[in-house]
Design a protein around this nucleic acid. Structure first.
Lengths: 396, 396
DNA sequence: GTTAATTTGTTCGTAAGCTTTACTAACAAA
DNA sequence: TTTGTTAGTAAAGCTTACGAACAAATTAAC
């Protein structure tokens, strides 16, 4: 096998596109060829270096179970494509030939992530392969919907593509609404999009691999990848803003649902005692109880800090009531909240967790944790980057 | 190898498809070798013939995407092992060499399934590879717990093994309680089992591949495999008996949960208006509302049929309230009820579905269906068989 | 009634992928 | 200087799937 000759990066991208993602998400009816095994193992190497910089070929061989020979071959290929670089020799004083340390070359490619979930503006960024934001831009949305909104998206991508420091690996998009497995926006009322094949439109226009997902799904992917140290493989992320949405990872894989509409918790009725009227017409929806706008409004009218706390705790309790069956049935290990920290941190979050504990078998869920996301406003944006990284390199 | 099937190879397939579901973080994704691809493709062939009897090699090649050459090779191997037989030539009148039809040889191997979920007796059966019960036996449990209960299990297997019509492919067990990924019974209070490595005990004693799973999980697998025609890939099965349990399939894969305790819906509190006191100490648990015993009891006291119906509908509503958030978040497409038909069919089931519709966005869940299982009392037993079929042959 | 077209399943040679075995290089410790 | 260890490479071999080519069996066409 000859490597190190492939200097054409576009060709390399082409190969990676085919390689994408390894065996995950494989439908039981799909054949598997030896080359799929190869690309899976290739992703394995990248994954190791994505997590830990400065591993030797032998280190990777040990941790993957593949032989040093095979790893050498894969690493050679990846170095040839520019994805991996040799850092030099390990400094340790120990017997044997010193190891040559390797690292992901995070600037071999860049990638584009977009967040279309903000009502005020579309956000986009150029990332390196490590998931670090290199350049960030926004475009105020105004009242743009339909075709106009689409043009805004195109314009953002074009602006980011203009600065050609590194070839672009792909584009990831986190969009509100229902997004199917083919990256088509089934329906996004706020954007006036219905059955819009966004993935294919972008892919054709920019001749790049594109992945489109629901914003809450993108967010939970970001949380899964960048969030906590020991990434939980069963977690739910609750996004609280104008609406309330959820993204879910079960057994390490994002859940999209039978009609690509998973995560719809905002309009689930909670409790058996009515509740505030919701925009959807029902009484007592989760969204009617805990949407950020309503919470802020109520807080303003609160007589004193104690009353404010009670209000937040009551709202948190409602979310807890809705989540308890989900936590019980899925045996989730982690709940992450995303939204205005001032509203959610403290009494609200405490009440959510406490309510879930009270309403399930607390022993079983003793290890259940609840925390605020550490990714702040960028959560969807970074999730969009994860879409590309995991889709094109099998890394996350 | 005592029988003709390369179990190592199939175990490899299991590892591949479940990769990443185990120890989070510590174990990334397992390596994949060409031979794993081979065993995957092998399962693909079996799967085709499992679903449809009388396909030719060329048919299978077309539907899998593999070439006729490869399929011929795989089929040759499977015929060599006795798993597949040639039926003869296709009778159609069409040009070309007539096709040789193939079928799964369902008696090439038998397998053993066990249902330990019945409080009164343990049930076991010998199945053929098509999932048909060949022989069925039971052992009254009496008050047996702990070691005694284990001995009962051993005795049942021994009785089934005595009749050596076909070699045994493996043993599948559906057990109550919490069962981890290694087939260890973490805790099954009714059986007095704690941290019992049931899988390994059986495997060592009988020198056969063994798979152990939670009873509700086994049941939902049975439903997924044998239940409806167009197997939904996102469904929940609710078992209502002395207790209330749930088994869940998301994206075509069974869900075990972060601590192997998924499906625990029985002791989730439902509603915000109290409710009957539950054995667990809380008020208003699902189980306290809808356990079969309570329903039957209430029905006896009902003044007239209309009152009885109202009682059942009220109970169904409670289950619906608990399920609504789960359906909303996971976007499930199918709910299946298992339990006493006389209690669950009719007003109860209707109320469950109606309540869920009222408490979620009904458009999104327009295709949601709810039905009784068609598998009756044998559901866990047959699920145990599926455990073996899917674990050893990759078929389901 | 003969020839052409079509479909099935096999044989043979090849490319890809990983492993085993065997080697060189480079180092620490005694 | 010797011994033992570790890193990485090279060569050979096995497995897996593929493409090309072909024989067999049958229908369709003339």
């Amino acid at each position: 096998m000859t490597h190190g000759v492939d200097t054409d990066r576009n060709a390399a991208v082409g190969r990676m596109t085919r390689a994408g993602g390894g065996l995950r998400g494989l439908r039981p009816t799909a054949k598997v060829l030896p080359e799929h095994a190869r690309s899976h193992n290739r992703s394995l190497v990248l994954q190791q270096l994505y997590r830990t910089e400065g591993l030797s070929r032998a280190d990777i061989a040990r941790s993957t179970g593949l032989t040093r020979v095979t790893i050498s071959d894969l690493v050679g290929e990846l170095i040839g494509e520019g994805l991996i670089t040799e850092l030099g020799q390990r400094e340790d004083a120990r017997p044997g030939k010193p190891a040559t340390l390797l690292a992901l070359n995070v600037h071999a490619f860049h990638l584009i992530g977009m967040d279309l979930s903000d009502k005020v503006a579309f956000h986009a960024a150029r990332f390196d392969l490590g998931g670090t934001i290199i350049e960030r831009i926004s475009a105020p949305r105004g009242t743009a919907v339909g075709e106009d909104a689409l043009e805004l998206v195109y314009a953002l991508v074009e602006r980011l593509l203009r600065d050609e420091t590194s070839p672009i690996l792909g584009i990831g998009v986190g969009s509100p609404g229902v997004v199917d497995g083919e990256g088509r926006i089934r329906t996004a009322p706020n954007l006036g999009w219905h059955d819009l094949p966004l993935r294919d439109l972008l892919a054709e226009r920019f001749e790049l691999p594109v992945t489109v997902a629901n914003d809450a799904n993108a967010a939970v992917l970001a949380e899964h990848t960048f969030g906590s140290q020991d990434a939980a493989s069963d977690l739910i992320l609750i996004q609280i803003g104008a609406g309330v949405g959820a993204g879910l990872i079960v057994d390490g894989a994002p859940v999209s649902g039978s009609r690509s509409a998973a995560g719809e918790i905002g309009h689930v009725v909670v409790g058996t005692d009515g509740g505030p009227r919701c925009a959807c017409g029902k009484d007592g929806c989760v969204e009617a109880w805990v949407a950020a706008g309503r919470l802020a409004e109520q807080l303003e009218q609160a007589a004193d800090p104690a009353a404010a706390e009670a209000l937040l705790a009551a709202a948190g309790e409602r979310l807890g009531i809705a989540l308890a069956p989900v936590v019980g049935v899925l045996n989730l290990s982690e709940i992450v909240l995303s939204g205005p920290t001032t509203l959610l941190e403290g009494p609200f979050a405490d009440a959510v967790l406490e309510t879930i504990r009270q309403r399930t078998i607390s022993d079983i869920h003793a290890e259940l944790t609840l925390r605020m996301t550490a990714l702040g406003q960028d959560i969807v944006l970074r999730g969009a980057a994860v879409l590309v990284l995991s889709g094109q390199l099998g890394v996350s």
